[in-house]
Design a protein around this nucleic acid. Sequence first.
DNA 1: CTCGTGACTCCCG
DNA 2: TCGGGAGCCACGA
Length: 110
Amino acid sequence: MADIFSTRAKAIICRIPAGMVTTYGLVASYSGNRSGARQVARILYASSDKYALPWHRVVNRTGLISPRASMGHIFQKQLLEEEGVVFDENGRIDLAIYLWRPESFDQDKY
DNA sequence: CTCGTGACTCCCG
DNA sequence: TCGGGAGCCACGA
């Protein structure tokens, strides 16, 4: 497949277990481009609409949800909380506990 | 087909 | 310690 980047990104996002989160950079890194964090975000947004990807399980490197819309991150936070993710008083996710790495799954080559 | 944009991250001053 | 700039590339119009 030529679009390994988007394909991989989607595949990875799709495999994020409920109650877990990952970061853009991490997904990008495992998709073949450590600087493709932005593309991951874009692919996610564009694809989540058509492929129903769990974009809400992807947060930025600090564990903080990126405020892409006025109420977007609030909704995202809510979804994660229902999956069992706990936020601290700053609305930040404890990556030490909830960070899920692509290496955790069989990343063959796909 | 071309152009603009961006839900990020890292590095340097 | 903190802030700003550059790099990267897919998607939509």
